[in-house]
Design a protein around this nucleic acid. Sequence first.
DNA 1: GTCATGGTTCGACAATACTTGAACTTTCCA
DNA 2: TGGAAAGTTCAAGTATTGTCGAACCATGAC
Lengths: 104, 104
Amino acid sequence: MTTLTQLPHPDVADVEVTDVLFALSDPARLQIVRELAAGPLTMAECGVTNPDLPKSTKSHLMKVLREAGIVRNEPDGRRRVVSLRKDELDARFPGLIDSVLGGR
Amino acid sequence: MTTLTQLPHPDVADVEVTDVLFALSDPARLQIVRELAAGPLTMAECGVTNPDLPKSTKSHLMKVLREAGIVRNEPDGRRRVVSLRKDELDARFPGLIDSVLGGR
DNA sequence: GTCATGGTTCGACAATACTTGAACTTTCCA
DNA sequence: TGGAAAGTTCAAGTATTGTCGAACCATGAC
């Protein structure tokens, strides 16, 4: 049976700019991306801004980011480490992430 | 009676980046913005890509773009001229529109 | 082994958003 | 004066998203 620890990640070449824009158009998701811009975080660590967010909700927010190719989510022991796919995104959509994050 | 020919336009200072991203995250709306990047168009002229789009639908797409501060819609005789608020957007979100449109 | 921890998935409901015909307004033209 | 043209608004149905508890799955600690 398939081990569920490895989540599917799209190839950035297959994601449309509209997918990325949509994923970033939610304040909670954008906030997560801002936090990740400084470096990878575990699920528990990110979302500091939203401390009372149910974990199922946070997991779902992360899923949208992951399916848009914005974030990578990898198992690390019994945690998961989430990281921005910055280089790949920059190659596919030059300047986009920086301009979205820019200011603030 | 309020004349309906002048539609409300938000101050770009009041629009959030998430509002802009959301408006651009729809392929039909993004296509309209791409067309407008070359210069203002009347409602009838823009949306060439979607010739069979009902006018109420097109009007609604435009409303979303307008309310996100992306587009200006001004009366011109019995037509309306729609234009990108490029300078204002560039000032508020430097580089964003260009990177979304993929040019540079 | 057993158990707690960190996280995902499922399912159901709430909340937005999209689509479109029909009605309406304004303006131009004959 | 009528129309007709160009668009907006309204209303109603459909579809997509968001939210979150409960169930489930690995892993590490004991």
